[in-house]
Computed example of a mutant assay.
Amino acid sequence: MSLSKFIQMSHGINPTFLNEVNVASMNEQQRAISSEVVQQNRCFDNCFQLAMHLDVTYVLGVYHHLIPIEHAWLKVGDVYIDPTLETVTGEVKGTYLSLVEVRASELIDFVVEVQDITNANAAYPPMFEHIKHHPEFRGRFISNRERSAFFDPKIVNI
């Protein structure tokens, strides 16, 4: 099975909206700031805080090294960096597929808008579960019916 089909099936994303991007190592200043903020397994929170602090773009997408996972990283100018992975492991390797990019200047309004749309009790950094309800990004996700078409009906109905 191709990576695109696997992501479509496992994450419910229309793969035509994924854009592969190259992620570079952070510079010394970014590394120093990230080392003060980054917590392991908290990529969404880490990148939300750093996007606001550094006035850069929050990127939500899929990271693939061993298996594809939902992940957040940053875009500084035209350069993508992954503060969480680089701070925790010391390196960035793998495939990065961007789905949504939100500039820091729009991030708070976007989070509040998604909170209002989903009637959530709290505001969260952008994640698939929340943004799939946003009218601008709804079309980037496939329905559960479309996802179930990948499975053999005999297996699903067990």
Score class of each variant (00 low, 15 high):
E86P: 02
E86L: 04
E86M: 06
E86Y: 05
E86N: 04
T87H: 01
T87E: 01
V88N: 03
V88C: 09
V88L: 03
V88W: 09
V88Y: 00
T89S: 08
T89V: 07
T89R: 10
G90C: 08
G90S: 06
G90R: 11
E91F: 15
E91Y: 15
E91H: 15
E91M: 14
E91T: 15
E91N: 13
V92I: 14
V92D: 04
V92N: 12
V92Y: 10
K93S: 12
K93L: 12
K93V: 12
G94D: 09
G94A: 14
G94L: 14
G94P: 06
T95H: 09
T95D: 05
T95N: 07
T95V: 12
Y96H: 06
Y96N: 06
Y96K: 03
Y96S: 07
Y96R: 05
L97S: 13
L97W: 09
L97I: 15
L97F: 15
S98T: 14
S98F: 02
S98K: 15
S98A: 15
L99M: 12
L99P: 10
L99T: 11
L99H: 09
L99S: 10
L99N: 12
V100N: 12
V100S: 13
V100L: 15
E101R: 09
V102H: 04
V102W: 08
V102Y: 08
V102Q: 10
V102K: 12
V102M: 13
V102F: 06
A104R: 05
A104F: 04
A104C: 01
A104V: 01
A104E: 03
S105K: 09
S105L: 01
S105P: 02
S105T: 08
E106F: 03
E106C: 07
L107T: 07
L107S: 10
D109W: 06
D109H: 08
D109Q: 08
D109N: 11
V111Y: 03
V111E: 11
V111I: 13
V112K: 05
V112C: 06
V112M: 11
V112P: 02
E113W: 00
E113P: 00
E113I: 01
V114I: 10
V114W: 10
V114K: 04
V114E: 13
V114F: 14
V114C: 12
Q115I: 00
Q115V: 00
Q115N: 04
Q115F: 00
Q115T: 09
Q115K: 07
Q115G: 06
D116Q: 03
D116I: 00
D116G: 00
I117C: 02
I117M: 02
T118H: 00
T118F: 05
T118R: 01
N119V: 00
N119W: 00
N119L: 04
N119D: 14
A120S: 10
A120P: 03
A120D: 07
A120H: 01
A120V: 02
A120G: 01
N121C: 05
N121E: 14
N121F: 08
N121T: 10
N121H: 04
N121K: 05
A122E: 13
A122Y: 14
A122V: 07
A122C: 03
A123M: 14
A123V: 08
A123D: 11
A123L: 11
A123I: 14
Y124N: 10
Y124H: 13
Y124Q: 11
Y124P: 03
Y124G: 03
Y124I: 02
